[in-house]
Design a protein around this nucleic acid. Structure first.
Length: 889
RNA sequence: GGGCGCAUAGCUCAGCUGGGAGAGCGCCUGCCUUACAAGCAGGAUGUCGGAGGUUCAAGUCCUUCUGCGCCCACCA
């Protein structure tokens, strides 16, 4: 049988295609099995997927595949997000290259372009997810703007409106002058920037007095409607109630008021109040019933309220105001300060607070069940600190501005009549229900993209229809996402889920870290440091990428992407490939059609050892996956396969496989290898789905195409997860093999020290510590010989005398003699044994100190104390042997 | 202003509920041993950031300091 020496990664595509064709990814709403549901965080159709998506989707796939093999009706719903503003910006940029603007195309024409874009990028994303191996149920693929989800959005909007939880009002919103739309608080990024703090003074009407103040935005003087001072501030007490004059605004007079918002220590202790352009001032304005003068247009230019400055951009207007005030002798000074300014997260333009008529979701009542969900434990985060982030946001939540002055998105279902009546309903009304007029205008705005994603866990299952899917698969089990969208998305899904479904949309939130570049920077388009997952998959295969992404990192911490980190992953898969290849080459004459083990009769101690280790591994990996400790789970699998299985057991089995021992022993080695490999394939399958499928099927067909209820049958992904077989766990076999390993390591070390080449087979004499050890070394003689490069191994009686002219190695179960004749140098032997003696004495001393400590003996757990005593006994016995040897040298 | 994270071998990082410091890469030595040189065997390397504390026992828990990084926030 010809099997290539390395795994062919190009087979991944075929394997995926077969899975898809066979319907293995489908979940059935009518199944009797317990559901396990995961909703993909729908990637934005702005671009193809990046490395962060690769990690995020790998984690989801691991959980889904794990649960599917565990007998759950596992459903992973895939889909994409229209990403309102982000996509609109990207498409506008593309169109600009052709000299087209959205205005020239008109609303209809522009939306057509966006749907075309969606065809291309939505498709790319889906094909990337498939390349990665994602086992999504593609029959259920959704898009946030498809008909069903759009209907859900309308339904949610109308219901919230009817309950008074959505309202329209003039509020101060974050306005992006570049995008020409309002944005939510969450979309504003604060950063410290250098700026100026300008000091001016206004004359106080009817007096010769002036009131000084500081501002970082002088142009807003045009919209000032008061000057506020602290009620406790004696300096200005006499001015309260008087009016100040704004010379640059046609000498408009504004009241001087007292408000606790003012900090007397900052600036001059007096603050100009511009309710239309500052959130604090807006609040002050409400308290004092001040007028609100909006001085800016949506594009950032000064409007008609700015008088002579009308039409001027905000920066230019600022200069003009400063000039004018200086000319009037009302300028005092300028300080340089660093202060936090808000910028739009999509375009980095400084956000302008503006009063606008917008739609809002009233958050106070909606937030309560979301807070309660976490407090009651219905909702859990993988790390406590993420729960804190979630809580902090909810406890300080403000109303959510949901209207956006864009075209790409769900258009707000509000219809306006000239008579002033407003109708909010799912379908356009034929006429005004109040005055009967037929000419109605729909609201021009669309909804914040997160409004539709907030409904994702149930809108994807058919809500508001009562579908069997919704009944079966909601609520979902786990949400895997990154920390940066806890407020944007996680919080909102929770309160919408609580609101419309009466249930928390998921029980576990698994926050994964960010994939950074090798310098630890975030991968971004501007830095051009992004790495395309497809390129990596092309070169190494999806299994290698997946393995690398989840290895060697805690799931919640950020990880750096190095190409060098791919190699260990590739090497490991190559190791597994070759180990399997080796086993398959040695299966001749087995005569079994599967690899089940009914009884351990006739199995060697090394067989029982590896089966025991494999059973422990199964238990550990299962437990780690249940608790979402993915990195720890995969590490255990890799260590087991490479170290215990390949480096020890396979080597130990060789003499038996090569037919140098009995036919029965060969068969038990074969069956053990098949059994352990089969388990290893399954445990590794969620992480590396392709290679494990290939090997599982190859091993199955070598055994004769066994078909016993799916085992080694048609696909690994629908096979049963290995059962945790407690009966296979055998501490005595594990202890025994540890003794053999210790002996082998001792011999190898001596060989290296004496520079005996591997080709030189040396004789080994073993004097076991007791009769049990004698039996052990007798039965593993051939394996030990192979592992230590020995020509002949003879096991003597426990009481046998030491051979002369030999190097001795004292191990736990035996003293081993290597008759190396000419190589033996008694000086060196004495030194070596003395060193060993010292080491043992130190160990014993350390344990004695511990056991001599009253506190330890009184308070430490019994098992810990016992283990220390046992170790001491072992060291003491070895010390006696070493001293004996020392006397003989 | 508030909150959080990180600091462990030359590098990148594991180390879950406290019980004798680990992996990969790199480095040194020797090997093409009939599965694998993408490999095998042997080896060197750490006051687990500093200082206190709790405990029989601290990389692990508490306090504090230092240095990086992140998030939230309306000081004009």
């Amino acid at each position: 049988m010809e099997i290539p020496k390395t795994y062919d990664k190009n087979r991944e595509a075929q394997i995926y295609e077969r899975w898809e064709k066979s319907g293995y990814f489908r979940a059935d709403a009518r199944s009797e099995k317990t559901p396990y549901t995961v909703m993909i965080p729908p990637p934005n159709i702005t671009d193809k997927l990046h490395m962060g998506h690769a990690l995020n989707n790998t984690i989801q796939d691991i959980m889904v595949r794990f649960k599917r093999m565990n007998g759950y009706e596992a459903l992973w719903v895939p889909g994409t997000d229209h990403a309102a503003i982000s996509t609109e910006v990207v498409v506008m940029k593309e169109l600009a290259k052709q000299g087209i603007t959205k205005e020239t195309l008109g609303r209809e024409g522009f939306l057509e372009k966006l749907w075309e874009w969606n065809e291309i990028y939505g498709g790319k994303i889906i094909s990337q997810l498939k390349t990665l191996g994602s086992s999504c149920d593609w029959d259920r693929q959704r898009f946030t703007m498809d008909d069903g989800l759009s209907d859900a959005v309308l339904e949610a909007f109308v219901r919230l409106y009817e309950e008074g939880k959505i309202y329209r009002g003039e509020r101060l919103v974050n306005w992006c002058i570049k995008c020409g739309t309002s944005i939510s608080d969450a979309e504003v990024e604060h950063e410290d920037r250098q700026g100026h703090l300008y000091y001016f003074k206004y004359p106080v009407a009817g007096t010769s007095d002036f009131i000084p103040f500081a501002t970082s935005r002088p142009e807003t003087m045009l919209g000032d409607t008061a000057i506020a001072v602290s009620p406790k501030d004696e300096r200005y007490a006499h001015l309260i109630g008087k009016t100040a004059i704004i010379p640059v605004a046609d000498n408009r007079e504004i009241p001087i008021i007292a408000d606790h918002y003012v900090e007397p220590e900052f600036g001059t202790g007096a603050v100009k109040i511009t309710p239309a352009h500052d959130p604090n001032d807006f609040e002050v304005g409400l308290r004092h019933k001040l007028p609100c003068i909006n001085i800016l247009n949506g594009d950032g230019t000064v409007n008609e309220n700015g008088g002579k400055l009308c039409g001027m951009p905000r920066e230019a207007a600022r200069e003009k105001v400063i000039e004018a005030m200086t000319a009037l002798g009302l300028y005092i000074k300028t300080d340089t300060i660093t202060h936090a300014v808000g910028a739009h997260d999509r375009c980095d333009t400084i956000v302008e607070p503006l009063v606008r008529l917008q739609w809002f979701v009233k958050m106070d009542e909606l937030a309560k069940p979301a807070i309660e969900a976490l407090e009651s434990g219905r909702l859990k985060f993988n790390r406590e600190r993420f729960a804190k982030v979630y809580m902090n946001w909810l406890n300080n939540i403000r109303d959510w501005c949901i209207s956006r002055q864009l075209w790409w998105g769900h258009r707000i279902p509000a219809y306006y009549c000239d008579c002033g009546h407003v109708m909010v309903q799912k379908t356009a009304p034929a006429a005004c229900e109040k005055c009967g007029a037929a000419s109605l205008a729909q609201d021009n705005d669309v909804l914040d993209t997160w409004f539709s994603s907030a409904l994702w866990p149930f809108s994807t299952l058919g809500w508001p229809e009562k579908t069997p899917e919704l009944e079966k698969f909601y609520p979902t089990d786990i949400l895997v996402t990154a920390q940066d969208i806890i407020f944007f998305w996680v919080v909102r899904m929770v309160f919408m889920g609580e609101k419309f479904m009466g249930k928390t949309p998921f029980t576990h939130v698994l926050i994964n870290g960010i994939v950074r570049d090798e310098q630890g920077r975030k991968m971004s388009k501007t830095l051009k440091n992004g790495i395309d997952p497809l390129e990596i998959i092309e070169e190494f295969g999806a299994d290698v990428l997946r393995l690398m992404l989840v290895s060697g990192n805690a799931i919640d911490s950020d990880t750096r992407f190095f190409r060098e980190r791919l190699e260990p992953a590739r090497n490991f898969l190559n190791k597994l490939w070759n180990a399997t290849r080796f086993v398959m080459m040695n299966l001749e004459g087995l005569g079994y059609r599967d690899c089940k083990i009914a009884s351990l009769d006739g199995f060697g101690v090394e067989d029982r050892w590896i089966l025991s280790r494999c059973a422990s591994l199964t238990a550990e990996v299962t437990e780690k996956l249940e608790t979402h400790e993915i990195g720890l789970a995969v590490q255990k699998i890799v260590d087991f396969i490479w170290d215990e299985l390949c480096d020890w057991y396979v080597e130990m089995a060789k003499p038996r496989l090569y037919g140098r021992e009995s036919e029965d022993s060969r068969r038990t080695a074969q069956i053990t290898l098949c059994n352990v490999l089969n388990t290893a394939f399954k445990l590794l399958h969620p992480f590396c789905p392709f290679i494990t499928e290939d090997l599982y099927l190859a091993l199955g067909s070598t055994l004769g195409g066994a078909s016993d209820g799916g085992e080694l049958g048609e696909t690994i992904m629908r096979s049963a997860w290995p059962a945790v077989s407690a009966e296979l766990i055998d501490p005595s076999a594990e202890k025994a093999i540890e003794r053999v390993k210790e002996a082998v390591r001792g011999i190898r070390a001596v060989r290296t020290e004496k520079q005996v080449p591997p080709s030189q087979k040396i004789a080994v004499v073993i004097v076991p510590a007791d009769s049990q050890a004698k039996e052990l070394f007798t039965s593993t003689k051939a394996a030990l010989a192979l592992l230590s490069g020995a020509g002949e191994v003879s096991v003597h009686e426990p009481s046998a005398a030491a051979p002369t002219g030999a190097v001795s190695v004292v191990a736990s179960g035996a003293t081993i003699y290597l008759p190396l004749d000419s190589l033996v140098d008694s000086e060196k032997e004495r030194a070596r044994l003395t060193k060993e003696k010292k080491r043992l004495e130190q160990e014993i001393e350390r344990i004695d100190a511990k056991l001599g400590n009253e506190g330890f003996v009184a308070k430490a757990p019994q098992a810990i104390i016992e283990a220390e005593r046992e170790k001491r006994g072992n060291f003491a016995a070895m010390l006696v042997k070493v001293e004996e040897e020392l006397r003989g040298v």
